[in-house]
Amino acid sequence: MTRAALVTGGNRGIGRAIAAGLVARGVKVTITARDRAEGAEAAEALGCDWALADLLESDSLRQFDGAPFDILVNNAGILPSGSLLDNPQGYFDCMAVMVDGPFRLTLALAPGMIARGYGRIVNLSSGWGAFAEGLGGPNGYGIAKAALNAQTLALSQELPGNVKINAMCPGWVRTRMGGPGANTSPEDAADTAIWLATLPADGPTGGFVRRRRRIDW
């Protein structure tokens, strides 16, 4: 059976590498992008579909209500500058993109996954969102990732075992967000996400993972 996957922010960086890896495994992939030209270019290069969506605009996610995706990869993220008090809008944007957006998409797709008896949800988090690692990052980034971690664990307690949901830390990655000095390539970072997106029936759920190994929240 051919599975269908939705990868947010799949036009570049880690998301693009995840999409490429899933396409290579025979998955029918749809990526989202905020820019028409970038979305179209990436989809053509990857051999997948694309949809115009901006997680800052919740109405743009309504198009996915009830869509028959078996796999959801909540990859899209932002990294605002400035402190929480000096740039409070950065906090609200972080929560919209990295907490509310993933939850809205899970609400849209999980009922279909449950009905079909199969689902894999992967939330791209960060060690900056781990209390065990000090809860770091600029502005609201670490707060949003910590909330995404909590959301992952809470949903794992409500979803049936055949709909698996996990969070993962990709590490410090050479992307536009991570910068050229990062020590991990997008392809290496994508490996764990692809693994979680294609877990077998006895695979884990409700975990926080880095390089295919559980880490502390």
Rank of each mutant, 00 (worst) to 15 (best):
G77E: 00
G161N: 13
G77H: 00
N123D: 02
G66K: 04
L79S: 10
M1G: 12
M98V: 02
G9Q: 07
Q151R: 09
T2V: 09
E57R: 10
P200G: 14
A67W: 00
F69N: 03
M113E: 08
D100A: 14
A167R: 10
W50Y: 12
R212K: 14
N11C: 02
N74H: 10
L56E: 15
E187T: 14
S83K: 03
A193F: 11
P68V: 12
L84P: 05
I215W: 02
I121M: 03
D216V: 12
A197E: 10
S81D: 08
L135R: 09
L56Q: 15
A150I: 10
A5T: 05
L124R: 00
L107D: 14
M168Q: 04
L79R: 15
P88L: 02
G9N: 08
P80A: 04
R3M: 09
L196R: 04
M113G: 01
A42T: 01
I31F: 05
C169N: 15
A53S: 09
R210P: 11
M113V: 04
A182E: 05
G82Y: 10
A146W: 05
G161P: 01
A132F: 09
R176P: 00
G203K: 14
A189E: 07
W50P: 05
M95S: 00
E187Y: 07
R34F: 12
E44F: 05
F131M: 15
G47I: 08
